[in-house]
Design a protein around this nucleic acid. Structure first.
Lengths: 146, 146
DNA sequence: ATAGCTGCAAATGCTTTGCAAGGCC
DNA sequence: GGCCTTGCAAAGCATTTGCAGCTAT
């Protein structure tokens, strides 16, 4: 799907989208954050990346970012609601660009993660929390052995 | 709930249960494995421990076990179907003594984990896997912010 | 100008591994 | 006796942190 045009002209999300998005959540649109946000959101809302993934991708595209900054940025984005953390493996943390309510298919062998649209799965009879505590989130992971 | 009798007389599971259980799955009943198994299963099937937890507990009771052996043992038990791994945090791995199908409440602040009986929750309309792959497991985690 | 960011490298913390010594069958 | 286990310490890895220098506004 690569084209000959340079990557900054090649995004479905225009520059101003990313920029405004950062401003809106109160993060200074620095070069690194802009670049990472563009990578993350350019193909719509269906990416699942690790810090390592995103760091490699950035470097591959010639963006100078340190791994530490990628980690910091991913956590900032998550905190601001631009990303969602998905915990499926103890060894790696995935970040998901789809912040709406949904579950995941997880291919354990390949490490691939796939969204399950909220309307294609349904939990009936959610039990009450033992102490009446408020539910923050419900994670559903369907594990697949391949 | 502590009594004055020594801990080995104090278990709801008799010694031979643990011993046979180990034999049955093909693990040599060594001193360490027996001791850890007794700790894990003594209070029925509702424990959620980390390696660190179990290691501390063992040492508190005067059982000489190294942390590495606790890790190895937990993984062996898991592999043999005596335990189940629960992944809720990227920083820690929990092991659950309840191997039947069930979900979990997870109290994020305190790190407490609580079983959700399978019959008190239900997923309706499980979506087919994209490629017809076989489902290995479905994890349900209800996160609570306290 | 200045508060906030970034990069690097070092530190951290959980988990795994290598290998010699010990224990079960 | 022979093979599986254990223990320890060291290694491994993903992630976090401290701090000096940079940069948006």
């Amino acid at each position: 799907m690569a084209s000959i045009t340079n990557s900054s002209q090649n995004n479905s999300r225009p520059y101003t989208f990313t920029l405004n998005q950062l401003r809106k959540v109160g993060l200074r649109p620095t070069r690194q954050r802009l670049a990472l946000a563009k990578l993350l959101f350019k193909d719509g809302n269906n990416r699942h990346v690790t810090a390592e993934d995103l760091h490699s991708e950035a470097r591959r595209e010639g963006i100078g970012v340190s791994l530490a900054t990628v980690y910091n940025t991913l956590h900032q984005f998550t905190q601001k609601g631009l990303l969602r953390e998905v915990i499926v493996e103890s060894s790696r943390t995935y970040f998901c660009t789809n912040t709406s309510d949904h579950g995941h298919f997880f291919y354990e062998k390949s490490g691939r993660l796939l969204d399950i649209p909220a309307d294609s799965i349904e939990i009936s009879r959610i039990p009450p929390t033992p102490d009446g505590a408020e539910i923050k989130d419900i994670d559903i992971i369907i594990r697949i052995d391949s």
